[in-house]
Design a binder for these strands. Structure first.
Length: 625
DNA sequence: ACCTTCACG
DNA sequence: ACGTACGTGAAGGTC
């Protein structure tokens, strides 16, 4: 057996690499001794795309704060067969696993080793979840971030050796690149083995620190909740979303043609790249346009809002008739939209689908500071909603249709519940159109759709913490109107104002954080204390959706779920029972009495493709091609 | 690495 | 004293 010494936090540790049958026997003996203790686990693989045929698990590591066992399990190497069985045996014996970012390793183990993911989740503590509960901030927001390296440097040992750098050097020395190294480096390479073992030592130690902190903060139940949510989201991800590959190929061609045609038009005005803001700005100024808006760094701003105004279009791309449209602005807008839609969505779908025509968008169930979920590769939470062409790429299962269930104005209702504002709560109970009602309170019975829109914006402004000036800029309404509406809003909903002030004042006078009714403690930046109200509301709305996922799973509806989208759940259900199951999903999501406020959910049933829910209506944007 | 832009709730 | 829009993922360009 090959063993490597390692020093962590001044303590001597050992990393064993399992080679012989005697090694395996010693490893399994160790596993039996640790059956009821927390054992950290990590895996190394050829890559991240676990759904591809060439995906392989390469190493599996088990360990504690002092000792690690590394087992080679690459199925491309016949000599690892017995080691693979030993790994399965070990998982059968161990009753408490500790994994950093378990979503990935559980998916890998299920795919490559045929492990039962449900059983793994039942016995796993995810240190990334614990870390997020202690500090949800990413690295770029003044927090530690949630990578194992950063967390270990902060909680375990700031001077732990940087084995990643050493490993990358080993890749290069062996003639591999950063991307090929993971798949090709020799399983026995000392640096690879030490790197893989080191992560387990760090995970085990990180667990000891974080578990104590979570206990001390009384967040054990919240941690259990998040593990269940993570398991359900991982199952959704593994199930994947069926895509229409033929349609998507055709769409790529159409978008590319549009992009090329519009890029050629822009070139006539001296713009080589429509993606270079400085070029676009210079060309527009040569045409006699005056650019007044500036970016943060003082450059002329030529974003979509600026270009739409120059092209005489509103935010839905409809002609306004206020001026002669600038043809360059028009071309740049169209070229950029086609490029965006192709590269971020259509190309990504073709790049990422598996042999069964399914994509497996990575669902980060606990991501934002507010705990909101994030979805990537492809970013299916952010597909264009004003047009059906991109969502048309996604299909229900054969014989199924796509449905969607979403909460009605959930953040506003959560705000009403948390603030206890009596008038707002009564309006919700009475089933009133909340924004229209607000408009009537401010402007009287003569209120117009313009007033309703303003009231709606002010409602969002309240949740976000924005002021009248920002609201005026965002809505395009005169500042005087907005100021009046904001003042009136505070008058008609005094409870909302009181709640907001209380949350912000607490963060200002005490620790700079907000505690949610779901038991989360969210840090607030000292220079952005106003954001505290939004955190309290957005985070709780996220927890409402997460609880809905758990309830749906418990009712056996999990197999239908495709995606969570903040206040919405997208599903695929058998055509014949679509309305019944859709109704059941929406009913399950609904919360009849959330701190005195009903949270209602609406369901929509479409056709075979997701795009069917977005076809021609009053919100249709101009076609892309 | 940073900036700008753009897609969503 | 006042006001600050909230939260993401991804791509292309520039330095």
């Amino acid at each position: 057996m090959q063993s490597y010494p390692q020093t962590i936090d001044g303590q001597d540790c050992t990393i064993h690499f399992v080679v012989s049958s005697v090694d395996r026997w010693r490893f399994l003996e160790w596993v039996r001794q640790h059956a009821h203790r927390p054992v950290a686990v990590d895996t190394e693989t050829t890559g991240l795309n676990y759904w591809t045929d060439d995906f392989r698990m390469r190493l599996v590591q088990f360990g504690t704060a002092r000792t690690v066992w590394v087992l080679p399990v690459d199925r491309a190497e016949p000599w690892t067969q017995d080691h693979r069985q030993a790994v399965r045996d070990a998982f059968g014996i161990l009753r408490h696993l500790v994994i950093h970012h378990a979503r990935a390793d559980v998916l890998f183990l299920a795919r490559d080793m045929g492990m039962d993911p449900r059983r793994l989740w039942e016995v796993t503590t995810d240190t990334r979840i614990l870390a997020h509960l202690i500090d949800p901030r990413g690295r770029d927001e003044g927090g530690i971030g949630h990578s194992l390296k950063a967390l270990a440097a902060s909680y375990v040992d700031p001077n732990a050796p940087d084995l990643a750098a050493e490993l990358h050097a080993a890749f290069r020395a062996a003639g591999y690149t950063m991307s090929t190294g993971w798949a090709r480096i020799d399983l026995r390479h000392p640096t690879y083995v030490r790197y893989s073992g080191g992560d387990v030592l760090l995970t085990a130690r990180l667990y000891d620190r974080l578990a104590e902190l979570v206990r001390a903060r009384g967040q054990q139940r919240l941690a259990d909740f998040e593990h269940t949510v993570a398991r359900i989201c991982a199952e959704m991800e593994n199930r994947g979303f069926l895509v229409d590959v033929d349609y998507t190929c055709g769409l790529v061609d159409r978008l590319r043609a549009e992009e090329e045609a519009q890029t050629a038009r822009a070139r006539l005005f001296g713009v080589d790249s429509v993606h270079a803001p400085a070029q676009v700005a210079a060309a527009l100024e040569r045409m006699g346009e005056t650019l007044t808006e500036r970016t943060r760094t003082g450059a002329a701003k030529v974003d979509q809002a600026v270009l739409l105004a120059l092209a005489d279009r509103d935010h839905r791309w409809q002609r306004r008739g206020a001026r002669d449209p600038n043809p360059l602005a028009e071309a740049v807008l169209r070229a950029k939209r086609a490029a965006k839609w192709r590269t971020s969505y259509a190309d990504a779908i073709l790049e990422l689908h598996d042999a069964e025509d399914r994509v497996h968008p990575g669902i980060a169930s606990l991501q934002a500071r507010t705990a909101r979920m994030a979805v990537s590769r492809p970013p299916v939470q952010q597909l264009p909603a004003g047009d059906h062409v991109i969502r048309r790429c996604f299909l229900a299962e054969p014989g199924h249709v796509i449905g969607s269930a979403d909460y009605q104005a959930v953040e506003l209702r959560v705000l009403a519940a948390l603030s206890g504002d009596r008038r707002m709560i009564e309006a919700i109970h009475a089933g009133r159109d909340l924004h229209g009602y607000t408009a009537s309170l401010i402007w009287g019975p003569e209120w117009t759709p313009y007033h309703r829109k303003l009231a709606k914006s002010v409602g969002f402004g309240k949740v976000y913490g924005g002021g009248a000036a920002t609201l005026a800029r965002q809505t395009g309404a005169p500042l005087a109107d907005v100021e009046r509406a904001v003042r009136a809003y505070d008058r008609v909903y005094p409870g909302v104002r009181r709640f907001s002030r209380r949350v912000v004042e607490r963060a200002r006078l005490g620790r700079p954080e907000v505690e949610t009714v779901t038991g989360r403690i969210l840090p607030v930046d000292r220079h952005r204390l106003y954001a505290a109200t939004n955190y309290a509301v957005q985070s709780v709305a996220r927890d409402v959706l997460a609880q809905a996922l758990i309830d749906l799973d418990r009712k056996g509806l999990g197999e239908y779920l495709r995606l969570p989208i903040h206040d919405e759940i997208v599903f695929s259900v058998p055509r014949d029972e679509a309305h019944e199951i859709g109704r059941e999903i929406a009913d399950t999501m609904a919360v009849p009495d959330f701190f005195g406020v009903p949270l209602a959910a609406e369901v929509e049933i479409g056709g075979r493709s997701w795009g069917s829910l977005y076809e021609a209506s009053d919100n249709a944007a101009a076609p892309a091609a």
